[in-house]
Write a protein that binds this DNA or RNA. Structure first.
Lengths: 342, 342
DNA sequence: TTGTAGGCGTTATCAT
DNA sequence: ATGATAACGCCTACAA
C-alpha cells in the first residue's frame, strides 16, 4: 500500500539499509547514491512509518493525557485550557498528544494501563489529583515518566514532579477580600474529600477567619460535586440552612456559577445581597453575569510548563525544579458587590 | 523492560504462539494451559504492546485531528467543543485520539503527511475548511479515511463525507431577525475569502436583504481575521465608515465579541444603539455582557456524529448519509436590544 | 494441542 | 560505500 524503504530500495537498486541511511543523513553514503535515493523517495512520496519507528526505537514522541468525558457542552473548561497549553508546548518539542477520555475510576485506570503499559506514550500528564491517587501509584510503580497538574492532599507526600497553584493561599486571599468588604457570614462550597485540593482550600478558608480573629462556623461549609449542578445544590443547602450568609466562596468557577444560579433562584441579588467567589478564572468567569470574582490559576501556562517538564524528564534531563507551587492571583469583579458599611 | 509474550512464554514453558493465542481467547488451546498462561500473564502484569500490534495489524484504532495552536487562553472554543464531542464518541468506539496543533499552512500540511502517511491514525477529522483545501486534496489522493467538519465553498464540489451547519440559512435567519426588529442598516463582518464558509454566510446576508426587498450595501461589509481582534478591527472600520449602522452581524461569536468591544469603544451601547449578532453559540456567548444573540451550531454533537461516521467509514461500513447539513437555530439574547419603532 | 517460520517497517550492528 | 542479519513485539499461516 504505502511506500516503504523496501519499495524505494527495489526501485533504485540499493539495499534497504543504504536507503535508510541515505534518508537519515548518514555521511557514509556516496553523494550520488544519496541524491538518487532522495529523488526516488521524493517521487514516490515516501513517508516513514512512524509506528515501525516507534517499535524499533522504543520511543513514541507522544505524550498522553486522560480527561473526564464531558457530556455537556461547557462542562469543564479546566481541561480544555490545560490541553490547549499542553498541545501548544508539545508541538514546540515535536511531540504529539494522545488523548483519551474516561470517567474517573476503574475504566480510567484500565486506560492508563492500556496506554502506558502498551507503550503508546513516552510520558503522561495526570490532571486533577485524587486523594491517594491510584494513577500516580501505578506510574510510580512502573517508573514511567509523568508529571502532575496538582499534588497530593496535605497529609500525604507529593513525591513526584508537579505544578500546582497554592490553593490554600488562593482561597485565603479570596476570603480575606470578602472579610475586608465587611462580610462576616461567608459560606464555603467544597468538593468531596476525595479531591486532593479540597483540604488545601478548606484550610485557606479557616486561616482567613483565624487571621481576622473571627470564628469558624462548620455549618457554613457545604459539599457538592465539582461542576455547576453541585455548586447549585450546595449553595441552596447553605442559603436555606444559614440565611444570614452574605457571601459564598466556591472551590471552582463552575461551582460558583451554580452558586450564582442558586442565589438568583432564592430571590437574592448576586453581589448586592450575596457576594460570590470562585477559583480558576476560566474564560467564562469574566463573561459571567455579573463577572465573577475569582482566584486566577494560570491553567494554560501550567499545561505548557508541565509539558516542558515532562519532555525533559523523558529526555532524562529533568529541570532543577520539579515541584512548583504557583502563587495564584485574586481577581476582583462585580460578583463581589461593593464594600459594606461596617 | 516491560513484560512481553516472550517473557511469559519463557516463564511458563510454552511457545510465544501458544501464549498469544491463549491470551487472545482462541479455542484451540488446552484449558489447563490457558489457565496457567493467564495466571502468569496476570502475575507479571502483562500489557500487550500496542505499537507492535499496530505495526502487525496495520490498524491503530486512533483518530487524528489537527487544530490551530491557541496561544491565548480563550481564543477559540470551537475546537475545544469539537474535540470534546469527538473525544466522547471516540471513547465509545474504543478509539483513541491523536492531536497535534499547527498553524494553517505548510507546517500543517507537513503534519498531515507525517501523521497520516506515517500510519499513526486510521482516520482524520478535518475541521474548519479552507477554500480548495489542500488537506482534503491530499487525503483524497491517498484515499485515506477522513471526515470533515464543514464543506467546500459553494462553487466547489464537496465530494467527501462531511457535516456542516447550513451557514447560509443561519445568517439569513439572524439578519431577518434584525430586520424584523426594525434595523435597516446592518453591517456584516466576514472572515477572509479563503475560509470556506465565508461565501455561504455572505449569501445568507444578501438573501435576507433580498427577501425583505431591501438593497444590499457593499460598504456595510468588512473583512477581518477570525478571532476577537479581527472582529474588533472590522467593526471599527464599519462604525467609522458607515456610522448609520444600527446592527452588526459577525461570522462567529469570537468576532462578535470583538465587535461588541468596538461598539463599546466607540461609545455606543450594545443592543440599544447597535445590536450585535454572532455565529456558533459557544458557551461564552450566553455569559457575555450582554448575552449574545447568535446562531447556534451544535458543535459538540457534530464532533460526536463525525466520529461515528468516521469509525464506520474506517470499518468499511459507511452510513447511508455521509453528507449532512444541519439546520442551525437562532438564539435571541440581549445583544439584540429591543425591537425598534418603525 | 502446540510449535516453527515469516512478516509488519524500521534501525543498529557488523561484515565486506 | 554498501549490504546481510537481527531485533523491536506481535500475529497468523502452516506444520507437526
Amino acid at each position: 500500500m504505502s511506500v516503504t524503504l523496501k519499495r524505494i530500495a527495489k526501485e533504485c537498486g540499493y539495499s534497504v539499509t543504504t536507503v535508510s541511511r541515505a534518508l537519515a543523513g548518514y555521511d557514509d553514503v556516496n553523494e550520488t547514491t544519496r541524491q538518487r535515493i532522495l529523488e526516488v523517495a521524493h517521487n514516490l512520496g515516501y513517508q516513514p512509518n512512524l509506528v515501525a519507528r516507534q517499535l524499533q526505537g522504543q520511543r513514541t514522541f507522544t505524550i498522553g493525557i486522560i480527561t473526564p468525558p464531558q457530556i455537556h457542552h461547557h462542562e469543564d473548561d479546566f481541561f480544555s485550557l490545560l490541553i490547549k497549553g499542553v498541545n501548544y508546548a508539545a508541538a514546540q518539542y515535536h511531540y504529539d498528544l494522545l488523548i483519551s477520555s474516561r470517567f474517573p475510576g476503574t475504566e480510567e485506570m484500565d486506560t492508563y494501563r492500556r496506554i502506558v503499559g502498551g507503550n503508546r506514550v513516552d510520558g503522561m500528564i495526570v490532571a486533577r489529583t485524587y486523594q491517594d491517587d491510584p494513577r500516580i501509584t501505578y506510574l510510580q510503580s512502573i517508573e514511567h515518566p509523568f508529571v502532575v497538574a496538582g499534588r497530593s492532599a496535605p497529609d500525604l507526600p507529593s513525591d513526584f514532579p508537579y505544578i500546582d497553584a497554592d490553593s490554600r493561599v488562593g482561597v485565603q486571599m479570596l476570603v480575606r477580600h470578602f472579610i475586608h468588604y465587611g462580610h462576616r457570614h461567608i459560606g464555603l462550597i467544597l468538593p468531596p474529600e476525595s479531591v486532593a485540593f479540597t483540604a488545601y482550600r478548606h484550610a485557606g478558608y479557616r486561616y482567613a477567619f483565624q487571621d481576622a480573629g473571627l470564628t469558624y462556623h462548620p455549618e457554613y461549609v457545604a459539599t457538592g460535586d465539582l461542576g455547576e449542578a453541585g455548586g447549585y445544590e450546595a449553595a441552596c443547602t447553605l442559603l436555606d440552612r444559614t440565611p444570614e450568609l452574605t457571601a459564598i466562596v466556591a472551590c471552582n468557577d463552575l461551582m460558583a456559577f451554580g452558586a450564582m444560579a442558586a442565589v438568583h433562584a432564592r430571590g437574592r441579588r448576586i453581589g448586592e445581597d450575596v457576594a460570590v467567589g470562585g477559583f480558576d478564572d476560566i474564560p467564562a468567569a469574566q463573561h459571567a453575569m455579573p463577572p465573577l470574582t475569582t482566584v486566577r490559576q494560570p491553567i494554560y501556562e501550567i499545561g505548557e510548563r508541565l509539558t516542558e517538564m515532562l519532555v525533559r524528564i523523558i529526555a532524562d534531563e529533568p529541570p532543577a525544579e520539579t515541584q512548583i507551587l504557583i502563587e495564584p492571583a485574586l481577581i476582583v469583579r462585580a460578583s463581589s458587590g461593593q464594600p459594606r458599611p461596617q
